[in-house]
Amino acid sequence: MLDKILCVDDDAITLMLCKKVIERVAFANEVHTAKNGEEAIQYFNNLATKYHNDLNLTYPKLIFLDLNMPIMNGWEFLDNYLQNSYQDLFKEAKFIVLSSTIDPQDVIKAKSYPMVVDFLSKPITKEMLEILKPAF
């Protein structure tokens, strides 16, 4: 079981469903949410500040990321994450990109980011998490 997961999506129902399914499957102890990429970057900024003071601080090892969001979309978030060198600080964090439509070009682009391990269609399901469990 993972200690923390972050779900990033602009749809409140999708975030609630993500949290409920993860809790029901006992996939993580804590589920944090962000409504867009900007909130997620703020989350990692706060974590980075705390992490420099406490190297034992836990951080999400898995982030479910929607692509189509207002304010800062998934692509902008991934670029910002890399620019801030968070992949160096949070080495074990892996991303699964979620989308309601699977565009082959989006899949190729997502997998070009070193921290993205998969691209799945929404919504997160119990079956999906059961398949992912052994990898985490």
Results as ranks from 00 to 15, higher is better:
C7L: 09
A135S: 10
P123K: 10
Q83G: 09
Y81G: 08
S85E: 14
A28N: 02
I102F: 01
Q87V: 08
V21T: 15
V117S: 14
L67E: 08
D11V: 02
L57D: 05
K19C: 09
L129S: 05
F77A: 02
I13H: 14
S100G: 12
N84I: 07
E130I: 14
W75F: 11
E30Q: 08
L55P: 00
M115P: 00
P134N: 07
S112N: 14
E30I: 05
D103C: 00
I63N: 04
D79K: 12
S121Y: 04
K126F: 15
G74M: 10
F44N: 04
A26N: 15
K91W: 01
L89G: 01
I41M: 02
I124A: 07
I71L: 11
Y81K: 03
V117C: 13
Q83F: 08
E130A: 09
L98D: 05
C18A: 15
N29L: 06
L82E: 15
N36C: 11
L98A: 03
L78D: 11
S121F: 02
I131Y: 02
K19G: 13
V116N: 01
Q87D: 15
K91T: 12
V116R: 04
K94L: 03
S85D: 14
G37Y: 11
A12G: 00
V31M: 10
Y81H: 03
L82H: 13
A12K: 07
H52C: 10
L120P: 03
T49G: 06
P123N: 06
I41P: 00
I41F: 01
M72F: 07
D79E: 14
N46Q: 15
F136D: 01
F44H: 00
V116G: 00
A40P: 12
D106A: 00
I63W: 04
K94N: 09
F44G: 04
N53Q: 13
E38N: 12
I63S: 05
K35H: 13
E130W: 01
I108R: 11
Q105I: 08
L47H: 01
L82D: 11
S112H: 12
T125F: 14
M16N: 08
K94H: 11
L89C: 04
Q87C: 14
L15I: 07
K50M: 08
K111W: 04
V107R: 14
T49K: 13
D54W: 13
D118V: 03
L65S: 08
Q83D: 13
N68V: 09
G74P: 08
L15S: 06
V8T: 03
D88T: 08
A28P: 10
N45Y: 05
L129Q: 04
E76D: 09
Y51M: 01
V116P: 06
N80Y: 14
A34M: 12
F44L: 07
K50C: 11
E38L: 13
N84P: 10
L132H: 05
S112Y: 10
W75M: 05
E127C: 00
S121R: 13
L47A: 02
Y81V: 11
L57T: 12
D106G: 01
C7M: 11
G37Q: 09
G74D: 06
L17P: 10
E39I: 08
P70E: 09
A110G: 07
I102A: 02
I13W: 07
V25F: 11
S112I: 09
